[in-house]
Simulated assay, not measured.
Amino acid sequence: MNYNVHIDVMPLKDLLDPQGKAVLGGLGNLGMKSIEDVRIGKHIMLQVEAGSPEEAKSIAEEASKKLLANPVMEYFEIHVQR
């Protein structure tokens, strides 16, 4: 069965996000002063052939750990859909 797997990769909360800070500054310059913080990450979509949603998640987790996310600087969340 094919599963659509969505992986969100974000900078660790304790690390500075220079890209997010630049966007926050730009939003402030546009008059959007109520936005207090911006974090910029990646959204990755995979189509995975697997026998179950749990297997699809396991495959995506392995791909994330080995290639898609840098565990020193980033964390990831996986969502599986049919």
Rank of each mutant, 00 (worst) to 15 (best):
A56M: 06
I40K: 10
V5S: 00
G31Q: 07
N29L: 13
D8V: 09
S64Q: 02
N4M: 11
G26F: 03
N29K: 15
H6E: 14
E49Y: 11
L16I: 12
K13D: 12
K13G: 10
G20N: 04
M32A: 10
K57T: 01
K65H: 09
E36N: 15
V80R: 07
A69F: 01
G25T: 14
H43D: 09
H79N: 13
D8G: 10
N70E: 05
M1E: 08
G28R: 11
D17L: 05
Q19Y: 00
K33N: 15
K57Y: 05
S58L: 10
Q81M: 12
G31H: 08
A63L: 15
P11E: 00
L46D: 05
K57Q: 13
A69L: 03
M45Q: 13
S58Q: 14
A50M: 08
S34V: 12
K13F: 10
K13T: 10
H43L: 12
I35P: 02
E49R: 15
L67S: 06
L67Y: 09
E55L: 09
D17W: 02
A56Q: 03
M73D: 03
A56T: 00
I35L: 12
E36F: 02
P71S: 04
K13M: 10
E61T: 14
P11I: 07
Q47L: 14
E55I: 09
E54I: 07
P71C: 04
Q19C: 05
P18D: 06
G51I: 07
E49D: 15
L30Y: 13
N70T: 07
K66D: 08
Y75M: 09
I7G: 03
N2G: 04
I78V: 15
V5F: 06
H43R: 14
Q81K: 14
D8Y: 11
K66Y: 05
A56F: 03
F76T: 00
S34Q: 14
G20I: 07
V23H: 08
I44Y: 02
L24Q: 13
H79R: 15
K65A: 14
L30H: 07
S58F: 06
M32R: 12
E77I: 08
A69C: 03
A63G: 00
S34A: 14
I35A: 02
Y3N: 00
A22W: 00
G26E: 12
E36G: 15
G51L: 08
V9D: 03
I44S: 02
P11V: 06
F76I: 02
R39K: 12
F76A: 01
V23R: 04
M1W: 10
D37M: 10
N70G: 09
G26C: 10
G28E: 11
K13R: 13
I7P: 01
V72W: 01
A56W: 04
H43S: 14
Q19S: 09
G20Y: 01
D14A: 14
A69S: 15
K42Q: 06
Q47F: 11
A56H: 02
E62K: 11
I40Q: 13
Q19T: 11
S52H: 06
S34R: 11
P18Y: 01
P18L: 02
Q81G: 08
D14L: 12
L46K: 11
G31K: 06
E77Y: 06
I59D: 00
V80N: 04
V23F: 03
G51K: 13
N2Y: 12
K13C: 08
E62V: 12
N4T: 13
V48R: 07
L27N: 03
